[in-house]
């Protein structure tokens, strides 16, 4: 696969979704970067383990972490950064294939595709939530440490 091309295309796609969702102008490039990192992690995982469910989980996890860091940096809601990054991971082709097989009366194959699409969307959701909980734990601990330090210096 062609890494620079995929990186560029996913950057462009996530940025374009940023325009459709009307993200604030100065965060458009960051949105593109979130989408790019999510897609590249997804592809790498897919090439190594050949399992799109795990790869989607990893991609969504990274998207969520990067979005969280950017949200802290820009002081804006995290949703602004995570949404454009999630779109490339949505199992559009699986859902399409399921639909196509239903129309062609291949119901067994359709069920296989549909359950795969369901698994992938579940994995994306789990990746998002896991990363968020981890980041919350991390930042809570960090905030406590800072508070303790300030308490010590005041005394």
């Amino acid at each position: 696969m062609n890494w620079p091309l995929e990186a560029f295309l996913s950057f462009l796609a996530a940025g374009a979704f940023g325009v459709i969702f009307n993200t604030p102008r100065r965060t458009l490039i960051s949105c593109g970067l979130v989408g790019m990192s999510g897609w590249l992690i997804y592809r790498t995982f897919f090439l190594v383990f050949e399992d799109s469910v795990q790869a989607s989980f990893a991609g969504a996890f990274v998207v969520s972490i990067v979005a969280h860091l950017l949200a802290k940096k820009f002081r804006m809601p995290m949703i602004i950064f995570s949404i454009a990054g999630i779109i490339p991971l949505v199992p559009g082709s699986k859902a399409y294939n399921a639909m196509r097989n239903i129309v062609e009366h291949n119901y067994l194959e359709a069920i296989a595709f549909a359950s795969e699409a369901l698994m992938i969307s579940g994995a994306v959701a789990m990746g998002l939530v896991f990363a968020e909980v981890l980041m919350q734990l991390f930042f809570k601990r960090q905030a406590k440490r800072i508070q303790r330090k300030m308490g010590l210096t005041q005394e």
Binding site: L5, S10, L12, A13, A16, F17, V19, P88, S93
Partner: peptide
Amino acid sequence: AASVASGCFLILL
């Protein structure tokens, strides 16, 4: 933007 996104996804997929 919608057009660009469609084009990008076509190649990515």
